[in-house]
Design a protein around this nucleic acid. Structure first.
Lengths: 225, 225
DNA sequence: TAGATTGTTAATCGATTAACAATC
DNA sequence: TAGATTGTTAATCGATTAACAATC
C-alpha cells in the first residue's frame, strides 16, 4: 500500500490548517468530523481534504468520518510536531518581538530558544525570557542548542546575509519575513512570508468594477524611452 | 488586441515582487532589464515573467528588454498604487504595532490611517502618530475617511467578528493575520497571511532523509476509537 | 438493511515552461 | 546584418474536483 508519490507543497501547507481546526473541535469535545464538515468550515473542497489525508494513510472510517483526536495525532506525526523543534530568530524589531511573544508554537513543540540582533544596543536586552545575543554568536549557538529552523526579521538588505549565516550553521529551514527573495542551496527550505506583497496585491482588486482586468484596462501607449 | 482573459491570483501576487525589485534597480540607476535578469534574481522562469506582464500590455521591446522606470509606472497603474489607498487596522498587540510602524506602504500610496482596539486600556494611546480608537467607531471612521482596506491583527476568536464589522462598513479588501479562516461575501477579498501555517509546515521538511514522505513514513495502525 | 462517508480513479481545470517567429 | 529578447502559441505539468465503488 506504500505508494511512492511526492507530496506537493500545497498539501503540506494545508495540514497545519486542518490541525488547527481539529484542535478547536477537540477542545469543544467533538469526537468525529467528516470531510464535508471540514470543507465547509475551512472553505475547501471535501474531496481535496480526503485526498490530502489519504496521501499519508487511511485515517478515516467509511460511513463515519475521522476521529478527531486520532487525526490530530497523525497530522502531528506527519508534520514532525510530535517532538521538540528548536527555532532561532534574528532581528528584534517590532515584528521580531511580536513573534517572540507569540506562543502558538509552544503547543506544537516548536519554540524560539535563541534571539539575535546586529545592533549592539539591542544585545543583552530580554524578550520573553530570552536574552538577545550578538549575531556573531549565531553559528555557535545553533550548533550548541540543536536549532533546526531560523526566522529572519531583519531589514531586506541584511536578510540574505543572515540566511547565509543560518545555512553555514547547518540550519534546515528558514522562515523569511524580509521583503526580498532569498536563495539557499538544495536541502535548505525557505518559506517566504511576504505580507507586503499580500497587501499590495490586494490593491489590484479595489474599486474594480470590471472584476476581470485585462489589457484594455491599462492604456498601452508606446513605450517611453 | 484587448483579450478578455481573467488574470489569475498567482499572477497578481507576483506583480508586487516585480515592482519591489524594479524599484531597487531604479535606485541603482539601472535603466533596462530583461526577463532573463529578473528571473535569475527572483527565482522565476523568464517565460513566466514575460507572460505575466503581457497580460497587461506590451511593455517590453524585442531585442532590448524592459525599461525599468516605464515598467514601474505600469505595474503601479495595474495594481492601482498610483492613487492613495486608505487602510484601517484592528488589534494593537505586538503584531499590530509592528505593522503600524512599518513604512513600506507609504512609498506605494498605501497608508494606515486609523487604528482600533477593543481593549479600553489601549484606546487613546498613540502608535506612530495615530490615536487608537474604540472598535465601536470602526464603521463611522471607515465611511468618513474613505477607507477601503482593513488589516486584522486580533486574536483568532475575534477575527470573524472584526471582519463582519469591516464588511458592514463597506470595506473591499481584508488582510487577515489571525490564524483562522475568515468568510466574507462576494465582492470582499480576503488575503490570509497565515505564518503559523508557514512555520508549522516547515517542520515537515526537517530531518527528512527520505525527501519524499509517503504513506510509508507514517505507520498506519488501525484507527483507534 | 439503508444512509453516510471514505479512499481512489478519472475528468477537468489551470498554471508553468519550452519553443520560436517577430523584430528591435 | 547578427545578436538579443520579446510576445505568444503549443506542450507539459500539476493540482483540483467529480464521481463512485467499497464499506462502515
Amino acid at each position: 500500500m506504500t505508494k511512492q508519490v511526492k507530496i506537493s507543497e500545497a498539501v503540506v501547507r494545508r495540514l497545519p490548517v486542518y490541525l488547527r481546526y481539529l484542535n478547536e473541535l477537540s477542545l469543544s469535545g467533538v469526537q468525529t468530523v467528516s470531510s464535508q464538515d471540514l470543507g465547509e468550515k475551512l472553505d475547501l473542497n471535501p474531496a481535496q481534504i480526503r485526498k490530502d489525508l489519504a496521501y499519508f494513510g487511511d485515517f478515516g472510517r467509511k460511513g463515519v468520518g475521522y476521529n478527531v483526536s486520532y487525526l490530530i495525532e497523525k497530522i502531528r506525526q506527519i508534520l514532525k510536531l510530535d517532538r521538540p523543534l528548536h527555532v532561532a530568530l534574528v532581528g528584534t524589531g517590532n515584528l521580531g518581538r511580536a513573534l517572540c511573544n507569540y506562543n502558538m508554537y509552544l503547543k506544537e513543540n516548536m519554540k524560539i530558544i535563541a534571539v539575535f540582533d546586529a545592533d549592539p544596543s539591542k544585545v543583552g536586552t530580554v524578550i520573553n525570557n530570552l536574552t538577545v545575543q550578538p549575531t556573531e554568536e549565531l553559528g555557535a549557538t545553533v550548533a550548541e542548542k540543536d536549532i533546526s529552523i531560523g526566522i529572519i526579521t531583519v531589514p531586506a538588505a541584511e536578510a540574505q546575509n543572515v540566511a547565509d549565516r543560518f545555512v553555514a550553521a547547518g540550519i534546515r529551514g528558514i522562515l523569511n519575513f524580509a521583503p526580498t527573495v532569498l536563495r539557499a542551496p538544495e536541502g535548505v527550505r525557505i518559506h517566504q512570508t511576504d505580507f507586503t506583497a499580500d497587501l499590495l496585491s490586494l490593491a489590484y482588486y479595489m474599486n474594480n468594477d470590471n472584476e476581470d482586468t485585462t489589457r484594455g484596462t491599462v492604456d498601452d501607449e508606446p513605450m517611453a524611452d
